[in-house]
């Protein structure tokens, strides 16, 4: 089989129990199983993770950074969503 038939997979690692998986990179593999083994070999040689997720890159639908201005526009002008927007006197400020 030629290398062109390999698919691209995105690799996510959980560094410690209890934490979220984080994207660490990608690799080529025949299928999910092989992607998992490759990911182990490539991305966890120094015990960087306790759990690996592999996802076909094609299955990822990403927002476009070029459009970010209009995409995130509905949230950008709402500072009252932040705790720091509310000024409270020192006596009661620790809430």
């Amino acid at each position: 089989m030629s290398a062109e038939n390999l698919q691209l997979f995105e690799i996510f690692l959980r560094s410690r129990r209890g934490l979220d998986h984080k994207h660490v990179g990608s690799l080529h593999a025949e299928d999910h199983e092989q992607a998992l083994e490759y990911a182990r070999d490539v991305y966890t040689r120094r015990s960087e993770g306790v759990s690996i997720w592999v996802v076909k890159s094609d299955d990822i639908c990403a927002s476009q950074e070029d459009d970010s201005e209009s995409f995130y526009d509905p949230s950008n002008d709402k500072p009252y969503r932040l705790a720091t927007y509310y000024q409270l006197p020192d006596e009661v400020n620790n809430m």
Binding site: G18, Y80, L82, A83, Y85, Y86, Q87, L88, M95
Partner: peptide
Amino acid sequence: SRSMVRICKEESFHQRQGYE
């Protein structure tokens, strides 16, 4: 546990706007 972390971050303004 992870959804609680996320929710707590968002909750912080709820109590403050109420007290204000």
